[in-house]
Amino acid sequence: MIRILGSRLLQLILVVIGIGTLLFFLVRVSGDPALAIAGSDATAENIASIRQSLGLDRSILEQYLSFLQNLCTLNFGESYTYLLPAMPLILAALPNTLYLSFVAFLLAIVIAVPAGIYAAVKRNSFSGKAVMSISMLGQSIPPFVIGIFLILVFSVWLRWLPSFGNEAGLSIIMPSVALSAVLMARYTRLIRAYFLEELNRGYVRTGKSLGFTNARIWFKHILRNISVPMLSLIGIDLGKFVGGAVIVEAVFAWPGIGSLMINAVKARDYPLLEAGVFAIAVMVVLLNLIVDLLYLYIDPRIRAKVN
């Protein structure tokens, strides 16, 4: 266990330094933030002075070294645009992103598990095939389009749900549905495939021979068994999930780090970008750690190897 934590920590450090370095150089070749800060009324002298105050007049190597130093102390400096320390800005927006991602993820699982099982059990009937068709559709429509569609139906037409922001409790519904749709569809299909595979396993036959109900066999035994391969996929999906969240946050004006990051890219706000990427990297690595720990909990064979 401690070994896993240790290796994850090492991984985290490497990921953050790697991504940070990549980002550091990428943003610096993309253009000059001083221009973006100065605005259209600024003079050339003005711009030069901004560059100096941001330390952008130093050599790239100097800048990189101080960036690495900042990484160690988790001090990313002040956002160029917001004039506030970058990390607290990110941390203030992070709960919203986590909340959205968590609910969307939960929703994907809660819908995909029964839908996938249904599609597997009823694979030869019309309704089972319909589930698969819908999930195919869900997988191929981008979250942006789903988001707009939801807004038009539930906000504009029916007026049931707020279309933007995160103020009312109901605000979470549409963004999380839009964000989870692709995942929901993907997991429905995967769960169906895994489920069909598991149906032929000996322990399922044993369960039947013991007179267990189908529900018990499906939801207790098969589900537990397919959660192992599902978990490894979820681990892979987490990174993609963040990308989806950025888009959905923009559509629903959701006050998370996605919206912050979009602005940071536009304004070439290096400190904010660096802090944001750092936060996302830590989040993804931590979530992967949770996935690993869940592995241990679910699959005793892996647990045995670790111990």
Partner: peptide, 23 residues
Amino acid sequence: RQLRAEKIGVIFQDPLASLDPCF
């Protein structure tokens, strides 16, 4: 199902496969 539960016991060929690996 009731019959299997109460009256019939079954042993299969491959005991490893017959048991749920997760419990």
